[in-house]
Design a protein around this nucleic acid. Structure first.
Lengths: 102, 102
DNA sequence: CATACACATAGAAAAATGTCAATATGTTTT
DNA sequence: AAAACATATTGACATTTTTCTATGTGTATG
């Protein structure tokens, strides 16, 4: 996939704030609109909006507009990208030298 | 494992900074001491020391003291914890109601 | 034992992030 | 069309993070 260092930071920023982690926990029960998320969090509406933007930018959450509501849910594809990325960046190269496999 | 929101943020803060992501890329080739890491990064020695502390706090990197050198490497166990955590936090509950599996 | 070396810590400045009140935008309802 | 509603954006401020210089600590070496 070859993500840049910058792109990797954008993905994992999703999980670097306690409120955002809490949002994941809430969304685990299924898609929810912003106003319902707001009810479960001690945050102002603009602050929630900001966090949802960070989450969507990461790809781990997707938003779906329906009339005046925004429905948010955890993205299985985004989660897969993040998993692959985490696996890749924490992998240790067995052999540094490709030709002799040493 | 049941990690708190706070603990989760500590893990993923490791990957929220471009320099730290670069450190992972370097450590993928194997254990390295701080002074050699420093050669490959455009950072001051105290700044690197700060980043290594963040990385060790996350559990994704471990340090090993040998004389006056600190050797750092990627932790396979830490990576596993992070993977499990990411998987858990991005999982969507199939059934909200335990009794009827609906 | 004095000096050099590797790394950590303290303290300060700069940059990035999180937060809210006020306001704007777009949608539905009356 | 006006009012109400859901969400986004703006601008300001507080907190956190990143970064550096200066200094401290522990270890090896001459």
């Amino acid at each position: 996939m070859e993500l840049s260092n910058k792109q990797i930071t954008v993905i994992f920023k999703a999980l670097c704030d306690e409120n955002r982690v809490q949002i994941f926990r809430i969304l685990q029960n299924g898609e929810l609109c912003a106003c319902h998320l707001l009810e479960e969090l001690h945050l102002s509406q603009p602050t929630l909006s900001h966090h949802m933007k960070v989450l969507c930018d990461s790809g781990l959450v997707v938003g779906r507009k329906e009339g005046k509501w925004m429905h948010y849910s955890i993205s299985a594809e985004g989660a897969k990208v993040a998993m692959d990325c985490l696996k890749e960046i924490t992998a240790v190269n067995e052999s540094e030298c490709k030709c002799c496999n040493k």
